[in-house]
Computed example of a mutant assay.
Amino acid sequence: MQTYVAGLDRGASADPRAGLVVRNDLSAAGKGSADGYVDLVTSPSGTYLQWDSNGDGWLDSEGGKVALATAPVELRLERTSESTMTGYYRTSPERPWSQVGTAPLTGADAELDAGITATANSTRATPTATFLRTRFWDEPESVDAVGVGTVARRAPALPETVGVTLAGGGRTTSAVDWEPVGETAYAVAGTFTVRGAVEGTGLVAVATVTVAPWPVHGAVGREVTFTAGGFAPGEAVSVALRTHRSLPLGEVTATDGGTVTPRFVVPRVRPGGYDLVLRGASSGTKLVLRLVVRPGHGS
């Protein structure tokens, strides 16, 4: 699990400590009451691990201190084997985790209680610790942004699942229940957003829907441009006109939001309607629009 120790007020204590703790049973206090006892704490002198080495219910051993890791600091305590716990710290969410050390687990059960802890390490002081963003590693933390493409008057196909990042950095997918989308939302070219409840997480997914025009109008020899979406961020998207054969019109790169804005000159073809095919090179996403061609000036 991990937490952010946002502050540690000494409260007249010379050595207050605050952080994460595991034990077979955190509800049972006192000597000999519970095995598998390890904590990872920050103090004015740094961050370090403590553990019960002989199974008597008291923290009697400690590892080396990381002097720079004082509050405010993020702490992470991970069970790295049946008999060891490893502690980590980082000074901001943008920085990578650094290892504090590894502590042995004595008499630990297969499953441990885990929580936060704060102590004055004294009976004559009352320090105050502030904890934020305390969570277990497998707790959902954020949902991937969703980009969807469609054309005017065609309902968007929203994904049944979305990617979810866990607090510990792991990844999973979860089903999403999207809110209803009215026909007026995609009646004309433009963008709109749809929200959906991500099942079992308490999180909300947001899909940005890009509606491309239908049809696209152009004249022979004139430049045409429009915006479409639903592609993978950064992928190359080819544009081709489908007549009796496929006429390549160029290639564009999708934005971070998965949208593209092709620009091309309408080739010399007969006036009429043609399929305009956009295809993502890496995702395989295909979006078919309609290009209505009229004669160019002087044609």
Rank of each mutant, 00 (worst) to 15 (best):
V5Q: 02
A6P: 04
G11M: 02
A12V: 12
D15I: 06
P16T: 08
D25Q: 02
L26P: 11
L26M: 09
S27I: 01
A28G: 04
A28N: 04
S33T: 12
S33V: 11
A34K: 00
G36N: 08
D39L: 15
V41Y: 03
S43C: 01
G46Q: 03
G46S: 04
T47P: 08
Y48S: 03
Q50A: 15
W51L: 12
N54I: 08
N54P: 01
D56H: 10
G57D: 00
D60G: 14
G64P: 10
G64E: 11
G64N: 13
A71S: 04
E82Q: 13
M85K: 11
M85W: 13
G87W: 14
R90D: 13
T91I: 13
T91Y: 07
P96H: 06
G101Q: 02
T102A: 12
A103R: 09
P104G: 02
P104A: 05
D109I: 01
L112Y: 10
D113S: 14
A114W: 06
A118H: 08
A118L: 08
A118P: 04
N121M: 08
S122K: 04
T128Q: 12
T128C: 09
R135C: 13
D138I: 13
D138G: 14
P140N: 12
P140R: 05
S142W: 14
V143N: 09
V146M: 06
V146S: 00
G149E: 00
G149S: 00
V151D: 04
R153T: 15
R153I: 06
R154F: 07
A157S: 14
T161D: 09
T161R: 15
V162E: 10
G170I: 12
S174G: 11
A175S: 13
A175N: 13
E179T: 15
E179V: 12
V181H: 06
T184K: 08
A187K: 12
A187Q: 10
A187H: 08
V188A: 13
F192K: 09
V194H: 07
V194A: 10
V194C: 09
G200N: 07
L203N: 09
A205I: 00
V206P: 08
V216D: 03
V216E: 04
A219L: 02
F226E: 07
F226A: 07
T227L: 02
G229Y: 01
G230E: 04
G230Q: 05
F231R: 00
F231N: 03
F231I: 11
E235G: 02
V239C: 00
A240V: 08
L241M: 00
L241I: 06
T243N: 00
R245T: 14
R245C: 00
P248W: 03
G250D: 01
G250V: 02
T253F: 01
G257S: 09
T261P: 11
P262A: 15
V269R: 01
G272V: 03
G273M: 13
G273I: 12
Y274P: 09
D275V: 03
L276S: 03
L278S: 01
A281V: 05
S283I: 05
L287V: 03
L289F: 02
R290V: 01
R294V: 11
P295G: 12
